[in-house]
Simulated assay, not measured.
Amino acid sequence: MTVHITRHSMSGGLDAENLADQLGRSQAKDIDELEESADLIDFTFTTALVALHARCVVDPRAAAVETWEATVNAMQLGSAFFAVTETSDGTVECRINRKLRSIPALGPMPSADAGAWLTAFWLAVICRDQQRMTQLCEISLERLRAPEGAYDEYIYHWVDALQTYWLRRPGLVDKLIATIEASDPPVARIAPQDMLQGLLYPPINLFYHFVRKDEEGFNPALADALKLHKAYWTMDEDREADIDGSFALGPLAVACLAYDGGFTIDVESEYLPKHLLQRGWLGEFPT
């Protein structure tokens, strides 16, 4: 039986469609300017994420090509961000916004950390861009470490587990167990507890069911992840109006892995855009 998790109202008077259009226009200019200087590429990536969330407010099924374009642009910028911070020499060729571009290399940036890596990786998974997934997974864990106190240690175990899974390295089970143990609330003390329980841990739990090929347990865990997402983003009026709650990035990405792995997904929700989950736009244009 299919379970439907209804998205919260996202009230607050925001004109998300107008915001998405405005960001799309400014973003196109910002992307063009990256070929002259990549100094603001992290800001451009963040703006692309806001534009994607805005698109998903007005198009929760991702049925419009504009939503797919916003998804691809965010994915391309996330991957480019890490590509240009992986080397200090020359330029890096990156396809962004339907054009192959030569972007000056930057070398390491503090913002190219494990949190940003997870976002970039989830976007590559959702876009089914295996080449970019591989490139991201080849980045060393030490390069992703933020200054002490920025993240709980679990996030590094989590990145390590995902890289190990995708590159088929040994030790996945031990690394996933280490992730689960390190993300336990008494252990993880930097992330706010409501964020940890509502947003950060559910993708780990979903991935655990996925790698165990536990299709029977996956769907209830997915439903729980979306309920927790909803509970987090309706905690108060400010959160409820925040477009960042328009869809559940981590759960969506793990659900994409499961869907592509042959799992039947029996959960429907505006937090889980149908045409992104079911790769309905794949092949529409080069990514």
Score class of each variant (00 low, 15 high):
Met1Tyr: 10
Met1Gly: 08
Val3Ala: 01
Thr6Cys: 03
Arg7Trp: 04
His8Asp: 06
Glu17Ser: 07
Asn18Asp: 12
Asp21Glu: 15
Gln22Cys: 04
Gly24Leu: 10
Gly24Lys: 09
Arg25His: 12
Ala28Cys: 02
Ala28Gly: 07
Lys29Tyr: 14
Leu34Met: 00
Glu35Trp: 02
Glu35Phe: 01
Glu36Phe: 11
Ala38Ser: 15
Asp39Pro: 01
Ile41Met: 00
Asp42Gln: 08
Val50Asn: 00
His53Lys: 03
Ala54Tyr: 06
Ala54Val: 00
Val57Tyr: 02
Val58Ile: 06
Asp59Gln: 11
Asp59Thr: 12
Pro60Gly: 11
Ala64Trp: 13
Val65Gln: 14
Glu69Asp: 12
Glu69Phe: 10
Thr71Ser: 10
Val72Thr: 05
Asn73Thr: 14
Asn73Tyr: 09
Ala74Gly: 00
Gln76Asn: 05
Leu77Cys: 07
Ser79Thr: 15
Phe81His: 03
Phe81Ala: 00
Ala83His: 03
Glu86Asn: 15
Thr87Gly: 11
Ser88Asn: 11
Gly90Ala: 10
Arg95Tyr: 03
Ile96Tyr: 04
Ile96Met: 01
Asn97Asp: 13
Leu100Val: 11
Ser102Thr: 13
Ile103Met: 05
Ile103Gly: 05
Ala105Pro: 10
Gly107Ile: 15
Pro108Trp: 13
Pro108Tyr: 02
Pro110Ile: 14
Ala112Phe: 00
Asp113Ser: 06
Trp117Glu: 06
Leu118Tyr: 12
Ala120Tyr: 11
Ala124Met: 08
Val125Pro: 06
Asp129Glu: 14
Asp129Ala: 14
Gln130Ala: 14
Gln131Ile: 13
Met133His: 06
Leu136Met: 13
Cys137Phe: 14
Glu138Met: 14
Ser140Met: 14
Glu142Trp: 07
Pro147Met: 09
Gly149Gln: 07
Gly149Pro: 09
Tyr151Arg: 04
Ile155Ser: 02
Val159Ser: 09
Val159His: 12
Val159Met: 09
Leu162Ser: 03
Gln163Ala: 15
Thr164Asn: 08
Tyr165Arg: 04
Trp166Leu: 13
Leu167His: 13
Leu167Ala: 13
Leu167Met: 13
Arg169Cys: 15
Pro170Phe: 14
Leu172Ala: 07
Leu172Cys: 08
Lys175Tyr: 06
Lys175Phe: 08
Ser183Arg: 09
Pro185Trp: 08
Pro186Arg: 02
Ala188Asn: 04
Ala188Trp: 01
Ile190Leu: 05
Pro192Thr: 01
Met195Gln: 07
Leu200Arg: 11
Tyr201Gln: 05
Pro203Cys: 03
Phe207Thr: 05
Asp214Thr: 08
Asp214Met: 00
Asn219Leu: 07
Ala221Ser: 11
Lys227Val: 03
Lys230Arg: 06
Tyr232Leu: 01
Met235Ser: 13
Asp242Lys: 02
Asp244Cys: 00
Asp244Ile: 05
Ala248Phe: 09
Ala248Tyr: 08
Leu252Val: 10
Leu252Ser: 10
Leu252Gln: 09
Ala253Lys: 11
Val254Gln: 09
Cys256Ser: 12
Leu257Ala: 07
Asp260Phe: 02
Asp260Asn: 11
Gly261Cys: 11
Thr264Met: 10
Tyr271Val: 04
Tyr271Ala: 03
Pro273Val: 13
Lys274Leu: 05
His275Gln: 14
Leu276Pro: 01
Gln278Leu: 08
Trp281Gln: 01
Gly283His: 11
Phe285Lys: 02
Pro286Lys: 03
Thr287Glu: 12
